[in-house]
């Protein structure tokens, strides 16, 4: 029977130089980190860059992981910081897309479909396109809160610690983001038809 190792065991193994442990650790989280990057940047290429930066950061800071929080939370803290850095450096996330004044899509990176994924079906691509369109309406700081809350299921307290803000501010950012992304029925239909 194959028993999957805990994250902590894999971290210890990787620190001892085990290539296998490191590979397992990366394989366990690469999909989630890649999707996080995709949702934050809106395209596969930047998602890949961000993923590589994240795992580089994870590896270089692995010896600092003390287990105070779960490895997953620690990893997403690094991902969060890397996304902020990337945004600062390249302004990749300062999107020109999203809805314009009339509520129509103005185009931009986030409206790009993940067509580079051949295994991805049409329905899935549509769902993802809609999610990307919605995320394109909000600034990075709110997008990060939405990402961590909806996709990574972190608590507002964890998000607040990560962003060095108060829990109330985290809640407010999330609510404000939802308000900006809210689907008004007639516009929702137009969005789905687009």
């Amino acid at each position: 029977m194959r028993v999957s190792n805990s994250d902590e065991k894999l971290v210890a193994g990787a620190l001892n130089g085990s290539t296998r442990a490191w590979r397992q650790l990366v394989q366990r989280y690469e999909r989630r980190v890649y999707n996080l990057g995709y949702r934050l940047t809106g395209n596969g290429e930047d998602a890949m860059d961000l993923m590589q930066e994240v795992f580089l950061g994870v590896y270089r800071n692995l010896h600092r992981f003390r287990g105070d929080s779960s490895f997953r939370t620690w990893l997403f803290r690094i991902a969060h910081n890397k996304a902020v850095d990337l945004n600062r450096r390249r302004k990749l996330l300062s999107l020109t897309g999203g809805l314009d004044e009339s509520g129509e899509f103005a185009g931009g990176e986030l409206s790009a479909r993940p067509e580079s994924e051949p295994d991805h079906g049409l329905a899935e691509r549509e769902r993802n396109r809609l999610a990307l369109e919605l995320l394109g309406r909000i600034p990075l700081e709110q997008r990060l809160v939405v990402e961590l809350k909806i996709y990574q299921s972190l608590t507002f307290e964890e998000i607040a610690q990560m962003q060095e803000i108060s829990v109330n501010t985290a809640k407010t950012r999330f609510y404000a983001a939802l308000k900006k992304m809210r689907l008004i029925p007639e516009k929702e239909n137009a969005l789905l038809e687009n």
């Binding site: 590979r23 596969g44 590589q52 809609l130 919605l134 909806i150 996709y151």
Partner: peptide, 21 residues
């Protein structure tokens, strides 16, 4: 409705990469 649409995200497989190794 917005939260539901966001949760409808279908995970994309990560491309093969070996740079981490």
């Amino acid at each position: 409705g917005a939260a539901r649409e966001l949760r409808g995200w279908e995970e994309i497989p990560a491309p093969r990469w070996d740079r981490h190794m």
